[in-house]
Simulated assay, not measured.
Amino acid sequence: MLPKFSRWLVSLIIVGGLFLGGCTSQEVASQSSENTSTTTPISVTQANNPQMNNLPRLEGKATVVMVVKGSPITIELDGTNAPVTAGNFVDLVQRGVYDGSVFHRVEKSPQPFVVQGGDPQSKDPNFRGQLGTGGFIDPETKQPRNIPLEIKPKGADTPVYSKTFESARISQPPELDHKRGAVAMARSMFPDSASSQFYFALSDINFLDGNYAVFGYVTQGMDVVDKIERGDKIESAKVTQGAENLKK
């Protein structure tokens, strides 16, 4: 067991590593909405959340194979418990958003934590800005695509959107937790700011449960994930099963 100081330091490093840089007016509005709510929310549905109307959804399971350093990483995506988050990821994989991008943050000490990638800016070898600040820009609308924070409490019928479990006053654990091999979305301090950046959990980091959206797990190739270093490239990412479950 880690000493209290070390545990606090570990938490600080991980949470800081998952935050994205910058914010938009949409994100500020999201933060304001979360901070002013004082009642336990009902899960938001697509019908009463306009932000979700045009987002892809995964209705069921899908499998993605990501190749890094010539070796495959197999990810099973759970659209049953995280339909919007998993659907967004599958859609971005099909668009080729991750092909050629690099892992810009790797946290392995003082113990294994996370590997984070998915910033489209990292595909440009001439980019000189700060990686970890970019997201997917929809080529049709020319606007950033952000998805709401989506976490389903264990035993619930539907996920809770746009709120952490703490702000929603939810005490039960999520259906999808941060065990080793979890795949989840990185975001800024504002709940509805996730876009394309994601991370692999290198160990059980359950103190993030209820704050970040897990949407799948590595089923094969965790040894490949363990060896990822900063700057390593995603050579390819392909949907190998369940593509028919993506609804746009």
Rank of each mutant, 00 (worst) to 15 (best):
Asp124Met: 04
Lys123Ser: 12
Val90Pro: 08
Val68Asn: 10
Val106Gln: 00
Gly60Gln: 00
Val97Gly: 07
Val93His: 08
Pro50Gln: 05
Lys123Thr: 04
Ile73His: 05
Ala47Gln: 13
Val90Ile: 10
Gln111Arg: 15
Asn126Asp: 14
Ala47Met: 10
Val106Gly: 08
Val93Ser: 02
Gln116Tyr: 01
Val114Glu: 03
Asp78Arg: 07
His104Met: 13
Ala47Leu: 13
Asp78Lys: 06
Pro112Gly: 07
Gln51Met: 14
Gln46Gly: 14
Pro110Trp: 02
Gln121Val: 02
Leu58Val: 08
Val102Trp: 03
Val90Met: 01
Arg57Gln: 12
Val67Pro: 13
Pro83Ile: 07
Val68Asp: 12
Gln51Pro: 04
Gly60Ser: 09
Asn81Ala: 13
Phe103Gln: 07
Gly87Val: 05
Ile73Pro: 12
Pro125Tyr: 04
Thr63Gly: 06
Gln116Val: 14
Arg128Leu: 15
Lys69Tyr: 06
Pro120Gly: 05
Phe89His: 07
Phe113Asn: 11
Gln121Cys: 09
Glu59Met: 14
Phe89Asn: 02
Ser109Asp: 13
Met52Phe: 04
Ser101Leu: 03
Phe103Ala: 11
Val97Phe: 04
Pro72Asp: 08
Lys69Ile: 09
Val102Leu: 13
Phe103Glu: 05
Asn81Thr: 09
Pro50Val: 04
Val97Glu: 10
Gly100Glu: 00
Val102Arg: 12
Lys61Val: 10
Glu107His: 09
Lys69Glu: 14
Val97Tyr: 03
Asp91Ala: 13
His104Cys: 12
Thr74His: 09
Pro112Met: 09
Asp99Leu: 08
Asn54Tyr: 07
Ser122Pro: 07
Ala82Phe: 05
Gly118Met: 01
Glu76Gly: 05
Pro112Ser: 11
Lys69Phe: 08
Pro83Glu: 05
Gln94Tyr: 00
Lys61His: 14
Arg128Glu: 14
Gly87Ile: 01
Tyr98Asn: 05
Thr74Phe: 03
Val65Asp: 09
Ala82His: 04
Pro50Lys: 00
Gln130Ile: 11
Pro56Arg: 06
Val114Leu: 12
Val97Lys: 03
Gln130His: 06
Gln116Trp: 06
Gln46Arg: 15
Pro120Trp: 03
Pro50Phe: 06
Thr74Val: 15
Val102Glu: 13
Val114Ile: 15
Val115Cys: 10
Pro72Met: 08
Lys61Ile: 12
Asn48Val: 13
Asn48Ile: 13
Gln111Trp: 01
Val90Gly: 11
Asn49Lys: 08
Leu92Arg: 11
Gly70Met: 08
Thr80Phe: 01
Asn88Thr: 01
Asn54Phe: 07
Arg57Asn: 04
Thr74Cys: 12
Pro125Ala: 02
Val97Asp: 00
Val115Ser: 01
Thr80Met: 03
Asn81Lys: 07
Glu107Thr: 08
Leu131Tyr: 10
Ser122Thr: 14
Asn49His: 13
Gly70Ser: 12
Gly100Arg: 01
Gln51Val: 10
Gln130Arg: 11
Leu55Trp: 00
Val97Arg: 06
Glu59Asp: 12
Thr74Leu: 08
Gly60Asn: 02
Thr63Asp: 12
Val114Asp: 00
Tyr98Phe: 14
Ser109Glu: 15
Asp99Ser: 11
Asp99Arg: 06
Gly100Trp: 02
Asn53Lys: 15
Thr80Tyr: 06
Val115Gly: 07
Asp99Ile: 03
Pro112Lys: 00
Ala47Ser: 15
